[in-house]
């Protein structure tokens, strides 16, 4: 299961010696198997929220619950995919993907079996023995996603994973991401500043306000999948979301 709840999450950062409110009472229920996208202006705390959900940062107020259990640490039930992938350059692709399994003490044969399945899913099989310096940015993000998926987490937390990609590679990965979600039925929370991306991926899109971050509005995106970026029927969704987002960006 992967029901993620955020109850009244507040977070302050110290800025110039004074506390600066970054998150202002985030209340959110993400149902099992939902694909929730968070958009917001830069500095709105959307990444901070994701990091708190991952247990990489502690909230000053409030609680994160997974399947009704309060959480206070990081763990492989909620795997984070970082903006720049955070792949380990000293390991080849396969060893990167198997890292979490190895840490968990899973024997080599079983590890290989699992990693092959996900390397295949992400079309990485022929790159299994490559090192990260030999990979394109798009390939690296594929590896990062495969590395997260092998952990079979309840929740996948993705922090602008496609921000650094060129448009063609991004479009391709946006479609693949939907297929993976449909296949694995994972709960996904996906942070981005790209509205088109959010509309393509999300079952629900949340708009965050300018700092301190609050949920300003949410949009349900009921539309067939896989959605492609050229689909004009997605434009009205984008326009509605942009109308909410634009005043926040200008603040």
């Amino acid at each position: 299961m992967g029901k993620l709840e955020s109850r009244n999450i507040e977070k302050y950062f110290i800025h110039d010696g004074k506390p600066l409110k970054t998150l202002d009472g985030i209340d959110l229920n993400v149902e099992d198997g939902e694909f929730v996208c968070i958009v917001g202006p830069s500095g709105c705390g959307k990444t901070t929220f994701l990091r708190i959900a991952a247990g990489l940062e502690k909230p000053d107020e409030g609680q994160i619950l997974l399947d009704n259990q309060p959480l206070n640490n990081t763990g492989p039930d909620r795997i984070m995919v970082f903006q720049e992938g955070a792949l380990f350059p000293w390991l080849n692709v396969q060893d990167n993907v198997e890292y979490g399994l190895k840490i968990a003490g899973i024997p080599k044969e079983k590890r290989n079996q699992i990693s092959h399945r996900y390397l295949d899913m992400m079309q990485l099989t022929q790159f299994a023995t490559s090192y990260t310096y030999q990979l394109s940015t798009g390939m690296k993000q594929r590896v990062a996603i495969a590395r997260a998926l092998v952990m079979e987490p309840d929740v996948l937390l993705m922090d602008e994973p496609f921000a650094a990609l060129d448009a063609q590679t991004r479009d391709l990965l946006l479609v693949e991401m939907q297929l993976i979600w449909q296949k694995t039925k994972k709960t996904i929370v996906f942070v981005t500043h790209n509205v088109a991306e959010a509309v393509m991926l999300g079952t629900r899109v949340l708009v965050f306000t300018h700092r301190p971050g609050r949920i300003k509005k949410e949009f349900k995106i009921d539309y067939k999948r896989p959605r492609i970026s050229e689909d004009e029927n997605l434009l009205p969704y984008q326009q509605k979301i942009l109308a909410e987002l634009r005043p926040e960006v200008k603040k």
Partner: peptide, 9 residues
Amino acid sequence: YIEAARNMG
């Protein structure tokens, strides 16, 4: 790197 590793357990 450290956060990813801790996150993975």
